[in-house]
């Protein structure tokens, strides 16, 4: 009789283990994905120099931003309607190519303009930009923008004759908005 009891206890013990053990999982995994869409990088191209042409000593000369073929022109391509910052680095002088002579150049706060597809082009642009400080605009519906800049050179009465040149740099960047 005690022997039969021991067998019963053993069987029940095995049953207990079977009830418990198969329901335990050692590990469980789950995988998600991190996803991101990188939009196109900005591309800026200098399309046209700011050309003053022939300048007479002692006579200031202005090129308006609306003057086709003479105003400086940049084209920007990026993501549709993305907000960008626009920042000019402007020279205060043009340097003589063959000597240390220089000629003053100046810009006003209305000397630049932009077209994003909502205006009428260079002669009737979508808006005015202050080239003296950074500004914020949105690219057009196709991700495009054209920027024009004018300015004024101020040759002295004894200005050395020759060709003068200076760099105008446009820096654009996404704001992230």
């Amino acid at each position: 009789m005690p022997h039969r009891n021991q067998k019963a206890v053993g069987l029940i013990g095995v049953l207990l283990i079977m009830l418990v053990v198969p329901n335990i999982k050692a590990q469980e995994y789950a995988t998600i994905h991190a996803t991101a869409t990188v939009i196109p990088a900005l591309v800026v191209i200098g399309e046209n120099d700011l050309i003053f042409g022939t300048v007479f000593p002692g006579v200031d000369k202005t090129v308006d931003k609306a003057t086709v073929g003479f105003a400086g022109e940049f084209s920007i391509q990026g993501n549709n309607l993305a907000e960008i910052t626009i920042d000019f680095t402007l020279p205060d002088s043009l340097m003589h190519e063959d000597s240390l002579s220089y000629m003053r150049i100046s810009f006003t706060d209305i000397d630049a303009s932009f077209e994003d597809g909502t205006g009428g082009g260079q002669s009737a642009p979508a808006g005015i930009i202050n080239p003296l400080g950074p500004s914020t605009e949105n690219l057009g519906a196709a991700g495009q923008m054209t920027i024009w800049i004018g300015g004024m050179v101020e040759p002295g009465i004894t200005q050395t004759g020759g060709d003068y040149i200076g760099d105008i740099t446009l820096t654009v960047a996404y704001t992230g908005s």
Binding site: L19, N23, T35, T37, V38, I39, Y174
Partner: peptide
């Protein structure tokens, strides 16, 4: 003891995904 063992038996854990990590649009350099 058997009857008691039923309710306290262990269940396997289960991990499910409710949401991915979604960054959306990302601007170059930002």
């Amino acid at each position: 003891l058997l009857v008691l063992a039923g309710p306290v038996r262990s269940y396997g854990q289960n991990a499910t995904v409710n949401n991915d990590l979604v960054f959306g649009d990302v601007f170059p350099g930002i």
